[in-house]
Amino acid sequence: MSRDRDSRRLPVIVTFVVGLMLTVMPLPETVEAFRPDWLALVVIFWAMQLPRTWSVGTAWFIGIILDVSYGTLLGQHALALCVVAFATVRSHLLMRVFPLSQLSATIFALLALYQFILFWVNGVAGVSAPAVTYWAPVITGTLIWPFLYMFLSGVRYRSRSGA
């Protein structure tokens, strides 16, 4: 049983690592502001699909890694991701049966919550206020969600049949 579980964990960890790569990958200046929050999306997906294994603890840990690679306040992204994961786990049963339109709206709300917490912490800590494009990742993230969802579902079911 334990071997079975480990073989299921690896693909998920790989998706997190790939998410981190996409997060730090260099992009041209003009599109950089529109980079979706890959890791937030991946965290939401796994918290929604396998909430017992991947929930707030994982999200928090990934947030800490994000904080280190961004050089932001240690705990800022951790806090935001952890709250988002909590909201996802609380509503994961609903989210699974939502049609795409409703699910997209939910994802939009979750990403907005994520950015808002980051924004709020920045405000409290006195980090200078970013531009309007600050909210762009919420929109690009929502737009990219259906594709990511299909891809990650593929990963999930393939890894299950392989296990």
Binding site: G63, G75, A78, L79, C82, V83, A125
Partner: peptide
């Protein structure tokens, strides 16, 4: 758990 993690985050920050 989420409460504990939030508190830890705030402490860290």
């Amino acid at each position: 758990r989420v409460l504990a993690l939030i508190l830890i985050s705030i402490l860290l920050m």
